[in-house]
Design a protein around this nucleic acid. Sequence first.
DNA 1: AGTCTAATGAGATTGAGTCTTATTATTATC
DNA 2: GATAATAATAAGACTCAATCTCATTAGACT
Lengths: 147, 147
Amino acid sequence: MALDEGAAWTEHVRAVLARAGLKRGGARERVIGLLATESCALSAVEIEDALRAEGRSPGRASIYRVLDLLVEHGLVERVEVGDGQARFERQHPSGEHHHHLVCERCGRLVAFDDPGLERAIARLSARLGMRVSGHDILLHGQCERCA
Amino acid sequence: MALDEGAAWTEHVRAVLARAGLKRGGARERVIGLLATESCALSAVEIEDALRAEGRSPGRASIYRVLDLLVEHGLVERVEVGDGQARFERQHPSGEHHHHLVCERCGRLVAFDDPGLERAIARLSARLGMRVSGHDILLHGQCERCA
DNA sequence: AGTCTAATGAGATTGAGTCTTATTATTATC
DNA sequence: GATAATAATAAGACTCAATCTCATTAGACT
């Protein structure tokens, strides 16, 4: 269930940040709370709007600061779709990650994962002889609804 | 040689645009001429600066217009590294493409291609059952110089 | 040459994201 | 529970790539 996942994630986030010796704060709690309920990628602007709709939006700077912090600690993944704004999405504590397809028609983001792709990248890293620490993969195409 | 490649590409670009029934223009010629000499990805701002250094920079709007046009016709590839500005790079007429690794230290872009990766994506597309028309792959790591 | 239309230039405008600085809240310590 | 040290926040000015507008210029065809 999304609710349980969100709750588990929230707990994990609190634990990681506490372990890092950080204090708590209202803006952070609100951003974390929102990300916990939404499993799809939100942009900073969407986060600001959503929180303002609740009548309690933190300053813009705080939102970006919180998001940067969460990304640094591997708690949130930054997803760039090429539309000029970054989006942010909860990341599983397990470290397992997924990628996205952007629908060329409706713009929807569809998540997927693929062990074969991960293997191909691992082999590629070895072949290149460069230290590869991460990868972003974005597919373009049509989602089930639009196809 | 880069020079020959650039010349061949320029010729190809002219042919494609002429076939599309487009007129020629100074701004376009200058942007194409610059991209022909540079094989690595240039941002619009870098293009503007480079052309201004020659004392003949087109207006900013023209540069973006030309780049959009070239991307639409598959003559130039848009590369997004996540630093908030798009970069543009000649694309081979053959259609074969490559991907990039961004060095986390020096920011350099290193190009590579990998048939295994392409195969993995083809298999993935089939498995997903969605129409996949393209993909962007970006690796993060350290280039040979920095490693 | 004349006409139609694409191409261009200059600058205003947008909008995501960053920076600055004063203020507030949290945690540890006494 | 008061205090001190410092992290967190708010508000808004600011940056800068990218877009938009619209008047002007210049290709290509007759």
